[in-house]
Amino acid sequence: MRRKISILFIVLLLGLAVSGCINQPTTSTITQTKTTTSTITQTETVVKEPHYYPISVKDFANRSITIEKEPKRIVSLAPSITETLYYLGALDRIVGITKFDNFPADVKEGRTVIGGFSDPNIELIASLKPDLIIITSMHYKYLEQLEQIAPVVVVDPGNIDEIYEQLELFGRILNKQGEAEGVINFMKAKIEEIEIKVADKPKVKVFYIVWSNPLMTAGKGSFINDLITLAGGENIFEDVQGWPQVSIEEVLGRDPDVIVLPPHAGITREELCKSELSKTSAVRNGRVFVISDDDIVSRPSPRIVEGLEEFARLIHPQAFNYNVNLLVCNVTAG
């Protein structure tokens, strides 16, 4: 009997144990992952370009000039200088010009006229407080006085290559090398375009009248000689340097096919046709032409390519489908 009670007691304990295990709550272990956010601070380093000025340049007179600071008040003593600065986008820096400046059309607005080309008013120039004065070789007699006012740069281009040199020089002085390169590339592209059009055309003998009395022309080393050559012509006085005075007999002996004169040559085309030059082939065939504007062939500025195009149209009108009837002198010598 006791044995049964003992067995029953053991069974009861086992049941309670099993029951306790089943009903015991489950403990979960939660592992938390902590995320760390980092803030990155970027430090921007600004690298300043080195100062461009002061710079030293050599002008057309082979003079060394130091430009201490960026020129912002420029006096120009020649229309060609003003025009070149205009093409570089520096017209707003010009404070003084000559009375002969006429390009662009509004060039005189807001600027002081400092006198003529050969007779600038030095006191007036000084009153403008310029930081740069640009002159030509025609102004050497004023050089010492002008140097007392501001740095002076001399330019004196005599042909197209030297017009490029002038642009490069101004580009350096004004820190506008990119603009200068752009203008030079524009000029070269225009010249190339014209050269291609006249490449297969016969060379035409050309006489250009700079002035009628005394009779003057443009020879080798001049930009007008360059224009005639590039336009597909042959300057009959290419063997003479500069701006020579020539005789009627010399012109008749070289017998030009085309005569070109500017509007202000001291003679009209009608008068020319009644002169001794009426014996030339140019007049006999009616091939006497007047260019539209003296300035586009006489001023060494980027506008010279306009003069080139006009020369080419007059010398080889068929290459440009150009009608030259209005410019032909129809008077024929007997």
Results as ranks from 00 to 15, higher is better:
4 K>G: 05
7 I>A: 13
9 F>P: 01
15 G>P: 00
20 G>T: 14
22 I>K: 06
24 Q>E: 14
27 T>P: 03
31 T>F: 05
38 S>M: 10
42 Q>I: 14
47 V>T: 15
51 H>I: 15
53 Y>L: 08
63 R>P: 08
67 I>Q: 07
69 K>P: 05
70 E>L: 10
71 P>F: 05
71 P>S: 05
74 I>T: 04
83 E>M: 06
91 L>I: 11
93 R>H: 00
98 T>W: 01
100 F>R: 02
109 E>I: 14
115 G>L: 15
120 P>I: 07
121 N>G: 03
121 N>F: 05
125 I>S: 04
126 A>M: 09
130 P>W: 06
132 L>P: 14
136 T>E: 04
138 M>Y: 06
142 Y>S: 14
144 E>P: 14
147 E>F: 05
148 Q>G: 05
152 V>P: 00
154 V>G: 10
156 D>M: 12
158 G>V: 11
160 I>N: 02
165 E>P: 08
166 Q>F: 02
181 E>V: 15
186 F>C: 08
192 E>M: 03
195 E>W: 03
196 I>R: 04
198 V>T: 10
198 V>Y: 02
199 A>M: 05
201 K>W: 03
205 K>Q: 12
206 V>E: 06
211 W>R: 03
216 M>G: 09
220 K>M: 09
232 G>N: 01
234 E>R: 14
234 E>Q: 15
237 F>H: 00
239 D>R: 05
240 V>Q: 15
240 V>A: 10
241 Q>W: 13
247 S>Y: 06
249 E>R: 01
250 E>K: 10
254 R>Y: 14
255 D>A: 07
257 D>Q: 06
259 I>V: 07
260 V>P: 02
265 A>H: 07
266 G>F: 10
268 T>M: 11
273 C>F: 07
274 K>F: 08
285 N>W: 07
286 G>T: 13
294 D>Q: 07
298 S>Y: 10
307 G>V: 08
311 F>L: 02
313 R>G: 06
315 I>L: 03
316 H>R: 10
322 Y>I: 11
326 L>H: 08
329 C>E: 08
332 T>M: 03
333 A>I: 10
334 G>T: 14
